[in-house]
Computed example of a mutant assay.
Amino acid sequence: MSRTIVLAVSALAVSTPLQAAPIALEPSSKWNLSYDKEACRLVRIFGEGENQVAAQFVRYVPGPGFDMYVSGKSLDPQGKQFEYRFAPGDEPGEASNLLYGQNDEGMTTWQFSTGLVPHAEYKALEMEKPEDRKAAILRESDRAPTITSFEISKGVSQPVALQTGSLLKPLEAMGACMDDLMRSWGFDPQVQRNLISSPEPKSEPGRWVTPRDYPAGALRKNLSGSVRVRLDIDEAGEVTDCTIQQAFSDPAFRLSVCNLIKKRGRFKPAINAGGDPVKSFWGTSVVFITSGS
């Protein structure tokens, strides 16, 4: 039910010095789950003082996977490759749809898409297939109780190992939050979980928003950003609504994304357990990255 459209890709334009060893940061707050209109946000603070790091796990549509936002004064970009892992049980890997910038407190914030399925296993899955999505959800459920830490090992001035402990109960709470959100959007969570097939794009989503659609003002300023949207799809496969769920960008990006996707996006409808077309939803992120970012 979720897809990412990337308009351009570039590496971090900085040198590659030797990385320091990760420092272990213990929790300095409890998990806090907030219910937004379009997202479930799980937040926890780790460490103290200059080494304090805030971690957010955010879901905009049901799992598997989630977006992460990690902020801290010690997380300035360093090196050309950002690597992380959930430990134990995985090797460090590169982040998908990676963006970074400064938050209102002047701390570096990293945004990327991730999940608990180990990197190598995830690459073998085709997430557009319902059976692969269900396999990934089961894999995340199996792995959540075994997690002890989240580690950023490359790409920041001070690598960190956030001592999360088991993620079983936090992610169960996030799942209950997503069920409530689906009801508020007008969808039955049970029906959506048991779909034979989710809404399927009739054409490549990467053609719906192209580099030619990059907002001219943002391009002149060399601005990057991302916009996440939720599309409501009816029983005929028509897009009936487009909602901006999150924007990590200049306002110019938000203004064009929904109009372009509603104009160009076409879908096959979702099919329920009885074989009938039903209304559903489909999420995507449009990532804008200039060559100078």
Rank of each mutant, 00 (worst) to 15 (best):
A144K: 11
Q163T: 07
T109E: 13
P88Q: 14
E131C: 08
P145N: 15
P92Q: 04
D142N: 12
E151I: 01
K169Q: 15
M182I: 08
P189E: 00
L162N: 03
P159A: 12
R193P: 02
L138M: 06
P92R: 07
D142W: 10
K169T: 15
S197Q: 13
Y100A: 03
P88E: 09
V156D: 02
Q192W: 03
M178W: 03
A144Y: 12
S198R: 13
V156S: 04
A120Q: 12
S197N: 02
A135T: 01
D142C: 09
P92A: 08
A87K: 08
H119F: 00
P92H: 05
A173M: 11
P201M: 14
Y122F: 15
G165T: 03
F150M: 08
A135K: 08
M182V: 06
I152W: 02
K129P: 06
K129F: 05
G101R: 11
K154I: 05
L116T: 10
S166A: 14
S149I: 02
T109P: 05
A124H: 13
P159Y: 13
Q111P: 06
S198Q: 14
I152P: 03
L99I: 11
S141D: 10
E126H: 06
G165I: 10
P159F: 11
I152T: 05
A144H: 15
S149L: 03
E126L: 08
E91M: 04
Y100R: 04
C177K: 08
Q111L: 03
W185E: 04
E131L: 03
S141M: 11
Q102I: 13
V117G: 09
A161K: 15
G175M: 15
R139K: 15
L162S: 00
A176T: 00
L181W: 05
L98G: 00
P170T: 01
A161G: 03
R183C: 00
P130L: 09
P189L: 07
T148M: 11
H119D: 08
S197F: 04
I196P: 00
Y100T: 11
L125T: 09
W185G: 05
A120E: 14
S113M: 13
T148I: 11
I147Q: 07
L99F: 09
L138R: 10
E151T: 12
L98M: 13
K154A: 12
Q158C: 03
R143A: 08
M127F: 14
P189Q: 02
P170K: 05
E91K: 11
L116D: 03
Q111I: 02
T109A: 08
F187C: 00
T164S: 13
E151K: 07
F150Y: 09
V156W: 06
E200V: 06
E94T: 12
E94S: 09
R183G: 00
S157W: 00
K134F: 00
Q190S: 02
P145E: 15
E200I: 09
S96H: 11
T109S: 12
P201N: 14
D180H: 07
D142K: 13
S198N: 14
K123L: 15
E121D: 15
K134V: 05
C177V: 07
S198K: 04
G155W: 05
N97P: 07
Q190E: 10
M127H: 05
G93S: 07
M182S: 01
Q192G: 01
E172T: 10
Q190N: 07
I137F: 05
E172W: 14
E121T: 14
V191Q: 08
Y122T: 07
G115T: 02
A144N: 12
P88K: 13
E140K: 11
D90V: 01
W185I: 01
E200P: 01
K154G: 09
